[in-house]
C-alpha cells in the first residue's frame, strides 16, 4: 500500500487516540478496585482489598464464577474438537459446497451477536434447552467454533499435506496420523485456539443474557448489577477478568513465539 506521509500521520494520530480511548477506562478500573472508599470515586482516597473480600465472600458471585468456569471449560473443549475437525475437513477436503459450509461455520463471527442471540433463543426454546446449563454450553460452543477454526485453519494450511500422505502410505490409519503426526506438530496452535475459545466463553454477555435463564455467569451478573446500582465490587471483578485475559494472551504469545508460529496465526 502506498500513501502520502500526511495520510500516514493522520492514521497514526487516530490510532493512538483510539488506543488511549480504549485503554484509559481499563487502566482507571484497576486502581479503583483497590479503593478504600464506599462509593466509586477517582482518584481513590486509600488502598484496601475490601472489594475483593466482598467479591470472594459473596456466595452469589462465587456461584456465577463456578458457572462461568464450568461453561467455559466444557464449551471451549467442545469448540476445540468440533472447530478443529471442521478446519481439517475444510482445509484438506475438496467437495461440492465447501465454501458454503465454511461460511456457515464462520457466520457467528460475522453476523451481529444480537442476531445470533435471537436465533439461539428461538432455536434453544424449540428444543427445550432454553434456560438450561446444557443450552448455555451449546450456545457458547457454537459461538467459539469460528475462533477455533480460524486459528486451526491457518495451522493446518501451513502443515505439508504430503507429511500426512506419507504417514498413510506407511500404514498409519487416519486416526493414528492425526494423533501421532499432526497434533504433536500443531500443539501450540491447539493451545492458542483453546485459550481463545475459553476466554470467548468466559467474556460472553449478550447471548448469555438472552438464553441463560436463572443461571448467572460473571459477565452477566456484572451487567445486571450495573443496571441496578454502581457497586464497587464490579471494579474488582473487572480487574480479575482483565488479569485473566492478559495472562491468557501472554501464554498464547509465549507458546506460539517458541514454536515460531506467532506471525502466521496473527496475520
Amino acid at each position: 500500500m502506498t500513501s502520502s506521509p500526511w495520510t500516514r500521520r493522520l492514521l497514526a494520530v487516530i490510532g493512538i487516540f483510539g488506543l488511549v480511548f480504549l485503554t484509559v477506562p481499563i487502566l482507571i478500573v484497576i486502581p479503583m478496585s483497590f479503593s478504600s472508599a464506599k462509593a466509586l470515586t477517582f482518584p481513590p482516597p486509600g488502598f484496601s482489598l475490601r472489594w475483593y473480600e466482598a467479591f470472594f465472600g459473596d456466595p452469589r458471585w462465587m456461584e456465577a464464577m463456578a458457572t462461568s468456569a464450568g461453561v467455559a471449560v466444557v464449551s471451549s473443549l467442545l469448540a476445540l474438537v468440533l472447530g478443529g475437525l471442521a478446519a481439517y475437513g475444510l482445509r484438506r477436503g475438496s467437495f461440492a459446497g465447501r465454501d458454503w459450509a465454511e461460511g456457515n461455520f464462520m457466520a457467528p463471527l460475522i453476523v451481529p451477536t444480537i442476531i445470533v442471540a435471537i436465533a439461539l433463543y428461538l432455536g434453544l426454546a424449540k428444543i427445550g434447552l432454553l434456560g438450561s446449563l446444557l443450552g448455555l454450553v451449546v450456545a457458547h460452543t457454537i459461538l467459539n467454533v469460528p475462533l477455533v477454526m480460524m486459528v486451526m485453519g491457518v495451522a493446518i494450511r501451513e502443515f505439508d499435506p504430503r507429511i500426512e500422505q506419507v504417514a498413510w502410505s506407511l500404514g498409519a490409519s487416519w486416526r493414528t496420523t492425526v494423533w501421532k503426526v499432526m497434533l504433536p506438530n500443531l500443539a501450540p496452535s491447539v493451545f492458542a485456539a483453546w485459550i481463545f475459545a475459553f476466554i470467548g466463553s468466559f467474556d460472553e454477555v449478550i447471548v448469555t443474557s438472552f438464553i441463560a435463564g436463572k443461571y448467572e455467569t460473571v459477565p452477566k451478573k456484572m451487567f445486571n448489577e450495573l443496571v441496578l446500582e454502581v457497586n464497587p465490587i464490579i471494579t474488582a471483578v473487572a480487574t480479575l477478568l482483565i488479569g485473566l485475559t492478559v495472562l491468557a494472551l501472554a501464554a498464547i504469545t509465549i507458546v506460539l513465539a517458541r514454536a515460531g508460529k506467532l506471525k502466521q496465526t496473527l496475520a
Binding site: D160, R162, I163, Q165, V166, A167, W168, S169, L170, G171, A172, S173, V181, N185
Partner: peptide, 15 residues
Amino acid sequence: QERNIGLVFQSYALF
C-alpha cells in the same frame, strides 16, 4: 494403508 508402498516426495515430508 493397505497397499504396502514406500513413498518418497521431493519435499522429504519427514515427521
